[in-house]
Design a protein around this nucleic acid. Structure first.
Length: 729
RNA sequence: GGGCGUUUAGCUCAGUGGCAGAGCGUCUCGUUUACACCGAGAAGGUCGUAGGUUCAAUCCCUACAACGCCCACCA
């Protein structure tokens, strides 16, 4: 028997607005879902656990189009699995975003005429904490506006005490396992951020600079950085250089100071570049550092953390590095030691965030040995313990893991987790703990211990996010389901932008495997970036960023969501086009009006009289529905969300509305439209399944319609079950 | 220097070893008691180029080109 909407009722057109006014429903419906506890994981008979840990957005920033895309994709998966009957958990969170947040806060301080140096560490930390706490609600409300059906009772912040405790535990464990070390290395120091950055946080840009040819006595060298000559400790030539033996017996002379340094040979030198001789400056260049180490040379620092000259002749002391370059070049010219100059186009490192020039600097930092961790990750990928449905991401991941380098995890900022390591003032020994201050030095028993002032790279803690969030849930006694970790780990899907594949996803796999012995998630689904209509990456500074809330206000959350998955594969970049949202707003309205047509004609006294047999149209629409739902189901299961969205759109609009409803629509003598039975019943039955199948994509209009039609009696659509059709044999 | 991706209608993009698809845009017509946030229809493509495999290639293979992205220690 076919379901007939809401029994006997006559709905006057006036009571049923012609357009779906999204803003009238969205907030109300979301609150209804949230209050009813629909976002909590619930066990059904044959459901299996399904869990996504949300990539925590920066607690301090508003959401942009990229967030809207991930929310849509993840919410589609979550709602689908929930309807399928799986025990479904989507765990939300917020990220403290160390460097970025501190930078934003410092800009704010600067506006007030202050700087971070005006405050002690604790005060500064507290100020940033309050600042973030005040802004955090905005981001969370934006997630709600987008319809994210995540479990707010499990909402977690990356700086929650329990999370910090777990991160410290991992750090200590790495130390005990010999995977952690403190080393003096060339690091990428960003003078603007006031901290060093990992290799990943440094971008390369091509620049044209001047190449200076300098007279070093018996040899000539070419350099782009004449201000660093005071840190030179040798000049290297290639082993096949002409007159090598002769040169090796002599000494090179640093211009201006006259200091004598050895001439050495090393195959790293390119004999065809410049003069074929390379000045070795281990204190300010990574290659030189490597060469210096090989030849047992000292590393001299001549630029300090503020980017000023130090440890140089008085004439240059205190100058900024670029001023010093001009001064040095001028003096070289005067003394005739500048042989010639030529322009050179080369690649330099810049800060990924501000594009400011990176200063390679010698510094002592905490490092994690990555090779052993990466090997386990590669094995897990090979064994398909973690699957990349889009093959190219697996290839890229594997390649990166194979060539991985040690990870510098200490940052010179206060906003973040302070590193739980103390140095003994007496014997200089470092003591690592799980967060508690040690009483005495383990080696000399000294009691004068000082905690490291650095904090962890944010990615070090977020690399532990999947197990940390689930474990801290388990530690909570107040919550009914205190075994989240046991139930949901490894999680089902990790969904995030491909731009943080290396930063985050692969590190989660490595640390997850290390800490728990298991991969943190079984499937990695990556989405492409949202660009502007011309294909340019969106950013606030370019002014081409779109505000999701504005789009929601204009077209509704459903329309925005659909537009972000419709018309392109999720793994590819998309160009954001407002026309597309508009089209989906029209679609939401179409759904609304299908409901309106069915509702205003549900008059039994009229339709009962016209009962007849099923027609070709009736039978065809039933079949098309079955095929559509099956295809959509398969598409969602294989993360081809665009296919699912598109086929549902096509079916609803062009098969159901344009063809079927038109074919069954009748008019009375007075011109009133009505639909006779059994077609009306069939139409209702098809429409019910349409609402269900579209619900993951367009949760608001479908829920609003579901309730309006009283399809579920007292249940909400969010809690309904996914339509099932037997696969054709 | 290595790697990856893209190239299909005016635009944005799906897709398949067997008549080339969607949305938007354009044009024509229609309806105005489900929806103008509507309907019916039309125009528009040598599926980047050149070879190869095949009965058959937009799809598979090879080379090339253009564009884009990622990685990399030539000062």
């Amino acid at each position: 028997m076919f379901f007939r909407g809401g029994g006997i009722m006559v709905m006057m057109p006036k009571q049923f607005p012609k357009n779906f006014e999204s803003s009238k429903y969205e907030t109300k419906i979301y609150r209804q879902w949230e209050r009813s506890g629909s976002f909590r994981p619930v066990s059904k008979k044959d459901g299996s656990p399904f869990c996504i840990i949300m990539p925590p957005p920066n607690a301090n920033e508003s959401l942009h189009a990229g967030h809207a895309r991930f929310v849509t994709i993840e919410d589609v998966l979550i709602r689908y699995h929930r309807m399928k009957g799986d025990k479904t958990l989507w765990l939300p969170g917020a990220d403290h975003a160390g460097i970025e947040t501190q930078y934003v806060f410092e800009k704010k301080l600067a506006k007030e005429g202050k700087s971070r140096f005006d405050f002690d560490r604790e005060t500064l930390y507290r100020m940033i904490w309050d600042y973030v706490a005040a802004n955090r609600g905005d981001m969370e409300n934006q997630l709600r506006a987008l319809g994210a059906s995540c479990d707010w009772e499990r909402n977690t912040f990356t700086l929650d005490r329990k999370i910090i405790a777990l991160v410290y535990r991992t750090f200590l464990q790495l130390h005990r396992d010999g995977l952690l070390y403190r080393g003096k290395r060339i690091v990428n120091y960003c003078p603007r951020c006031g901290t060093n950055l990992s290799q990943l946080e440094v971008d390369s840009v091509e620049r044209t600079d001047t190449l200076y040819y300098l007279d070093y006595g018996p040899v000539k060298i070419a350099t782009t950085r004449p201000e660093t000559i005071f840190a030179d400790v040798a000049v290297a030539i290639h082993p096949t250089s002409k007159g090598k033996q002769d040169l090796l017996e002599q000494q090179a002379i640093i211009p201006l100071t006259g200091k004598r340094i050895p001439i050495i040979e090393d195959s790293l030198v390119d004999p065809l570049f410049g003069t074929g001789a390379l000045k070795i400056t281990p204190g300010h260049d990574a290659i030189d550092f490597a060469v210096g180490k090989k030849h047992n040379l000292e590393a001299i620092t001549v630029i300090d953390g503020a980017g000023r000259m130090t440890n140089v002749p008085d004439a240059y002391k205190g100058m900024k590095a670029d001023q010093a370059r001009a001064a040095v070049v001028g003096d070289l010219e005067k003394s005739g030691l500048l042989l010639k100059t030529e322009p050179i186009t080369h690649v330099v490192g810049v800060c990924y965030k501000h594009q400011s020039l990176i200063e390679p600097m010698l510094s002592e930092q905490w490092f994690i040995k990555m090779k052993p961790l990466a090997e386990k990750a590669m094995k897990a990928i090979k064994n398909k313990e973690v699957v990349f449905p889009v093959r190219r991401f697996e290839k890229i991941s594997y390649h990166w893991l194979k060539n991985i380098e040690d990870w510098n995890i200490s940052r010179q900022i206060v906003w973040g987790m302070r590193i739980p390591a103390w140095q003994c003032a007496h014997c200089q020994e470092w003591i690592v703990t799980d967060g508690k201050k040690p009483v005495r030095c383990v080696s000399c028993k000294g009691a004068d211990l000082h905690q490291d002032t650095d904090t962890f790279d944010t990615w070090f803690s977020s690399g532990q996010w999947p197990f940390a969030t689930l474990l801290t849930q388990s530690l909570s006694k107040s919550k009914p389901s205190s075994n989240d970790f046991k139930q949901f780990y490894p999680t089902s899907v990790m969904e995030t932008g491909y731009d943080i594949l290396f930063f985050w996803v692969l590190r989660m796999i490595m640390i997850g495997l290390y800490s728990t012995g298991k991969v943190p998630f079984k499937t990695v689904v990556l989405h492409g970036l949202v660009r502007d209509i011309r294909g340019v990456k969106m950013s606030k500074s370019k002014g081409n960023a779109i505000n999701p809330l504005e789009m929601i206000g204009r077209y509704g959350a459903d329309a925005l969501r659909m537009s972000l998955v419709w018309g392109g594969l999720i793994e590819n970049d998309i160009n954001f086009d407002e026309q597309k949202i508009k089209g989906q707003r029209n679609f939401a309205n179409k759904i609304w009006n299908i409901g309106r047509l069915l509702a205003i004609n549900t008059d039994d006294s009229k339709t009962r009289a016209a009962v007849r047999n099923k027609t070709v149209h009736d039978r065809r629409i039933m079949k098309q529905l079955a095929v559509t739902v099956q295809t959509a189901t398969r598409a969602i299961e294989s993360y081809k969300l665009n296919i699912a969205a598109e086929i549902l759109y096509e079916f609803v609009w062009h098969q159901f509305a344009d063809v079927y409803l038109e074919s069954i629509k009748k008019k009375t003598e007075t011109g009133e439209v009505y639909i006779p039975q059994p077609s009306l019943g069939i139409a209702h039955s098809v429409f019910r399944d349409i609402l269900k199948a579209l619900h993951p994509f367009m949760p608001f209009v479908t829920e609003a319609m579901w309730q309006r039609m009283s399809y579920g009696k007292k249940t909400m659509l969010i809690a309904e079950s996914w339509p099932k059709y037997k696969t054709k044999s």
